[in-house]
């Protein structure tokens, strides 16, 4: 009996050690990134783990630079993120609800078309999107929002899986009580899908913070850094001309760390909803 418990204790210790090693491996590069954001460096390349010289200047520099208006970028991105999250969530939830709970002739074809559309790589459509937005005179943050929301109608899979798992009996009971389908949607469907709404909103909220390619294609035309979003602005900062990499690299890292912090926190908050959503979708298959 004793050897058995010893063995178990040993196994537990082994698992703890394994987990600790893995955790260190995973987190180590992230810590290095944070360290690098404090390092004094003017060569565009960080070659040591521990900075040779610590400085706050990178953070001061990125927050006060007139050439690269970081604060504007953050505000722009916040603007895009809030509006696009609100609209996208509505679109995604509505589409998912309709496809899951209502039956109509277009349902099957729509699901199939959505599946097919998702398999084309996105880059080629960017040229077309550019000209469509130009025609609408929306080569700006508004156009960016429009495109993000435009894609929301196809991102319904997880939410649909969630609605699929809700028992139908609830709807039917409500309808027998005389509620119409809209009332069922608003008073029963939406309240029950709160975790899904939070999840969808957070995902679409985070998208603009990390998109540096599409936002670049739409926003770069203005040539005015004040109109950029933070992802494109930062990316552009070190890629826009010869020599800027050396000059601005550590400021770039500092800027990245600043925006990574809130996103990380949001993501950690979102974990629970993410897990709920995914399982709901996966259960159904």
């Amino acid at each position: 009996m004793k050897s058995y418990s010893n063995q178990r204790r040993f196994a537990l210790i082994f698992r703890y050690v394994l987990l600790a090693i893995l955790a260190v491996l995973w987190i180590f590069p992230i810590i290095w990134i944070i360290l690098a954001s404090f390092s004094y460096n003017n060569t565009g390349f960080v070659s040591t783990i521990w900075p040779e010289k610590f400085t706050w200047q990178n953070y001061v520099g990125i927050l006060t630079s007139s050439q690269y208006p970081f604060v504007n970028w953050v505000l722009n991105t916040l603007f895009v993120a809030v509006i696009s999250a609100t609209l996208s969530t509505f679109v995604t939830i509505a589409v998912a609800y309709v496809l899951s709970r209502l039956r109509f002739r277009f349902r099957k074809p729509f699901l199939q078309i959505a599946l097919v559309l998702g398999m084309f790589p996105g880059f080629m459509s960017m040229i077309a999107l550019y000209y469509i937005l130009k025609a609408l005179n929306m080569l700006n943050l508004g156009g960016l929002i429009l495109v993000y929301v435009g894609g929301a109608g196809l991102g319904f899979y997880i939410a649909k899986g969630f609605f699929d798992t809700m028992p139908r009996a609830i709807d039917e009971a409500a309808e027998i009580d005389g509620a119409n389908k809209w009332q069922v949607f608003v008073h029963i469907g939406l309240p029950l899908s709160k975790p899904m709404i939070v999840y969808t909103a957070l995902t679409s909220f985070m998208a603009p913070w990390v998109d540096f390619i599409f936002s670049g294609i739409i926003l770069s035309t203005s040539g005015n850094p004040k109109t950029y979003t933070v992802a494109y602005g930062l990316y552009n900062m070190v890629h826009s001309a010869k020599g800027t990499m050396a000059q601005f690299f550590t400021q770039f890292i500092a800027g990245c760390v600043i925006i990574a912090i809130p996103i990380t926190i949001l993501f950690i908050v979102m974990q629970k909803f993410y897990v709920n959503g995914i399982t709901a979708g996966a259960d159904k298959g």
Binding site: V91, M124, N180
Partner: peptide
């Protein structure tokens, strides 16, 4: 209700996904 809720998403999908895909 499906028509009401799907109209705007479908317009957006046609304009921002289907049209670019056909163009491509």
């Amino acid at each position: 209700l499906h028509a009401t809720l799907m109209t705007i998403p479908i317009v957006l999908i046609i304009l921002f996904t289907v049209l670019p895909t056909v163009f491509m």
